[in-house]
Design a protein around this nucleic acid. Sequence first.
DNA 1: GTAGGGTTAG
Length: 520
Amino acid sequence: MRETTTVFVSNAFIRALALAGRGDDALAVCCQMSETGLSFDRFTYTYALKACVVGSGSGEMKGKEIHGSLLRRGFERNLHIATTLIDFYAKFGLVSCAGKVFDEMPVRNVVSWSAMIGCLAKNGRPFEALELFWEMMVGNPDEVPNSVTMVSVLQACAALSALGQGKFIHCFVVRRGLDSILPVNNSLVTMYSKCGDLEMARRVFDRMDRRDVVSWNSMISGYGVHGFAEEAIMVFKEMINDGRVSPNAVTFISLLGACSHSGLVDEGKRLFYSMVPEYHIYPSSEHYAGLVDILGRAGRLEEAMKVIEDMRIEPGSTVWGSLLGACRIHCNIEFAERASVRLFELEPTNAGNYVLLADIYAEAKMWEEVNRVKKLLEARGLQKVSGCSWIEVKGKIYSFVSVDELNPQIEQLHALLVKFSLEMKEKGYVPDTKAILYELDEVGKEEIVLGHSEKLAVAFGLINSSAGETIRITKNLRLCQDCHSVTKFISQFTNREILVRDVNRFHHFKNGLCSCGDYW
DNA sequence: GTAGGGTTAG
């Protein structure tokens, strides 16, 4: 056979295996090609890179080797290959490698731009994703963004809680006639719900002429994170009655999350135990984590532990993480230690677990243990993730870190917060400084909690918005106890609605109360 | 004769 024919056949084989999810087998065929002296062509490279993504283990290393090989043969400038490379690096979270390929491309089109925007959006760099989108729009009038581009851009807006930008993109989507495309609408539902506008999410959802399982799941999880478990379950029932789409594993993860945020213990248990008999969906570690979360938050730690012990699969880090989170709420040392032992084995570099355990010890005033955990954290070269909050004002994002000395408005924000603090103390408020894990006098600790990023963002929101406008804030961590009570007070004192999205859920503060019912 | 980017959860 001629070599071109042989390469063609091998390509087809590699492609088929990669498409079937058998990346390792596909790569084995690649190796055979090399051994028999057949050289890759431009098609082989794209299929081989795809195989690295769907393979089991060493895909990252194999892909880098493939990159080296195609580089030596001058294929990196090929549009399709470069785009595939960007996507390969994106899937392994190697943003700077993807960026390097993108920057060095001699020619780009809408697909390569979208691949890079998607890479940033999915790897925790939503701000840069939007920047790149605008660069594409402004600097490259010939490249018209399409529905795929819009999905990634909407994802970035959702991650940032950038409602203003999201609405702008929504208008753009309508003007371009992309509003009948299913994934675009699904992304709109998620964008509006993550930006805190649940009504608009529902409106988009209701107007969709076709819905797939992602549409339903998006709406269910939207209600769930906003603390409306009953509505989430109603949407689920609508989905079942409609009958055109079957629920999947994600549906139940969303439902269990919804029950957990609202404290619906019995309903959550009922849903969990209906999965296999009614829907033939076998619970994964994430589902067990959901159930453990529901029971744990409700203070039923023994029952949660029993669920873990009786699991039919090996409990993953999410399960132990749920238990540890519950131990923090209910200050249970014994189970916290059991969960930590497993978590430190399963994910030794997750700083959050060490911090949670230290918080639990601190709450119990077990300072020696607090120091022991802190030393462990340091010994492993890890750092506590620092708190960060942000707010969108007139389409621009303003972000704050705790005790934000570099912020130009810090004096003004601080003065406003001190004023609130004094008023609150007259009404019996005592600052909650338990979250501070190092020794400091009480005055110093109060100063620090008053400088928490979330409070700075609230103060900024109050100064830069008009009465009647809802203040929308996003935070990268769980809301601390003190910020929660202070925000409740501010909502009453200023007669303003404040919406805070923390890392897990939304809190609607109004008239001195929070929608989470102080249960989060 | 074969090619590239997309939505839900955690």
